[in-house]
Design a protein around this nucleic acid. Structure first.
Lengths: 174, 174
DNA sequence: ATTCTTTTTGCACCTAGTTGCAAAAAGGTC
DNA sequence: GACCTTTTTGCAACTAGGTGCAAAAAGAAT
């Protein structure tokens, strides 16, 4: 149940319409939990019926912009969720499956694929770094800032890991 | 469409019944693509109807053990799949969402959660290391062996990354 | 041989995420 | 104001994965 909580977080940062949310997802929360506008609208509807968020007064109808804000119950729900305990979700990495498959039926075409992935991860790393420079140029600040920096660092380090691993793999398959 | 290919791979390594497959998944392929026995049976059924695998002759019926092997079409399918190009799947990491949520509503309970995750990742790393010692004690061998070693290395390095990151995060949240 | 337990297979339902498409409103152009 | 495009919202159908539960067979116990 992550998407609703992601949306609550985003709405607390700034009340928004569905479309604004979608755009902001694309360049922040979505890095760790992507969502399309369809998913977001559906979830906004559910959160509203659940009484966790509300549209700020305006005659609501299809096609008309609707701005949502988080209610007290929503904030409480999110606070609870932060402290909940939940196991890390299992890794699902098709590329590793393909490596294993290649060990059985041959690795034809695999090198190219590894190279493609390498390019994608490099691009992602570059994007994270530019965000880092833009948003966190100097040392630690408030707790909120430190948390956000930690998330970003997870991103850069994760991408760095893949870059290193893929480089090694391509090298070894030479 | 990863599960069917994971199953094809496992069946090529060794023809098996559904239950055997389930057990083998739990300690090898399942590290990167977990599956329950229910999923596996369902997929075996589909692969059979698709003509990619076949049960070795035996009166088939419910409750009676059924051994599957991969047909030529199945091997061909798997070979194609290895060379297919497919973007890395987006990361979905609820823990990062919780960090961001914590930046907004406070981090109560988060430290404990990070510590729990740390323990899980440490245990997983230990498991990978013991497999490494058991199965790959010495340097590189055949291509197949090199591929499997690379997969295992991805596992150990990924866990190491998380351990390092979590340690840093706990440290910084003091 | 009857009963009980374990193994093995599998169905059915549910939740979450994806994709295609379209309706209502808003805004621009003639 | 009639027409066209863009924005915004949303429905509906589909796919994949997760969970609960049960039926058939095999094996053990008496």
């Amino acid at each position: 149940m992550s998407l609703p909580h992601a949306i609550l977080t985003a709405l607390l940062e700034k009340p928004s319409s569905g479309l604004e949310l979608t755009r902001r997802f694309d360049k922040s929360i979505g890095y760790f939990w992507p969502a399309t506008h369809q998913q977001i609208y559906r979830e906004l509807g559910r959160l509203e019926s659940a009484g966790l968020i509300a549209a700020v007064p305006q005659p609501p109808s299809r096609g008309r912009r609707k701005e949502y804000e988080v209610l007290a119950a929503g904030t409480a729900e999110l606070r609870d969720w932060v402290g909940e305990s939940q196991d890390p979700r299992p890794i699902r990495e098709p590329l590793m499956l393909r490596m294993r498959a290649a060990a059985v039926v041959g690795s034809r075409g695999l090198r190219e694929e590894l190279a493609r992935h390498l390019a994608v991860h490099r691009a992602q790393l570059a994007e994270y770094r530019s965000i880092e420079e833009r948003d966190f140029p100097d040392g630690a600040g408030s707790e909120a800032e430190r948390l956000q920096r930690l998330v970003l660092r997870a991103g850069t380090e994760l991408e760095s890991f893949w870059i290193a691993w893929l480089t090694g793999a391509i090298d070894e398959l030479g």
